[in-house]
């Protein structure tokens, strides 16, 4: 079994990056692997933006992440620094800065170290193979 750390860097409307990452996660879990977390960085933070409305006839990528999260309980972490500078606002940021929050609740705003600490965790356990994949 492999453990995967997934890194998503593109927004849902500029590329299929998020959709490809999600398909990969679903396939990996189906084959018995584990996805330890999906981490959203750079424009990837827009995957968590609850204010995005897809055009008529287009599917919502966010809705797919929500279903995936409900079915698998996979942590969906977004970089808090990358998010705030792109107008993707967590509950905590909204409260402290008087803004509206727009991160969907299945996503969690965290520091980047959360992702890299998971890499370190892998190095201390020789039984499990951790693979980092960037989308």
């Amino acid at each position: 079994m492999n453990k995967f750390l997934i890194f998503v860097t593109r927004s849902p409307f500029e590329s299929l990056n998020g959709q490809t990452a999600l398909s990969f996660c679903e396939a990996a879990i189906k084959l018995g692997h584990e996805v330890s977390q999906v981490f959203f960085y750079q424009q990837g933070v827009q995957q968590a933006n609850d204010f995005i409305q897809p055009a008529a006839g287009e599917q919502s990528q966010l809705a797919k992440w929500v279903i995936f999260s409900e079915q698998t309980r996979t942590p969906l972490n977004i970089c808090v620094t990358a998010a705030i500078k792109r107008g993707v606002v967590s509950t905590e940021e909204a409260m402290s800065n008087g803004k509206f929050e727009n991160i969907h609740p299945v996503f969690k705003a965290v520091g980047m170290s959360e992702y890299f600490a998971a890499m370190r965790l892998g190095s201390s356990n020789d039984e499990v193979s951790i693979k980092c994949i960037q989308f």
Partner: peptide
């Protein structure tokens, strides 16, 4: 920023 965050842990 990614390099610094990784080195930090």
């Amino acid at each position: 920023e990614a390099a610094l965050a990784a080195s930090n842990v």
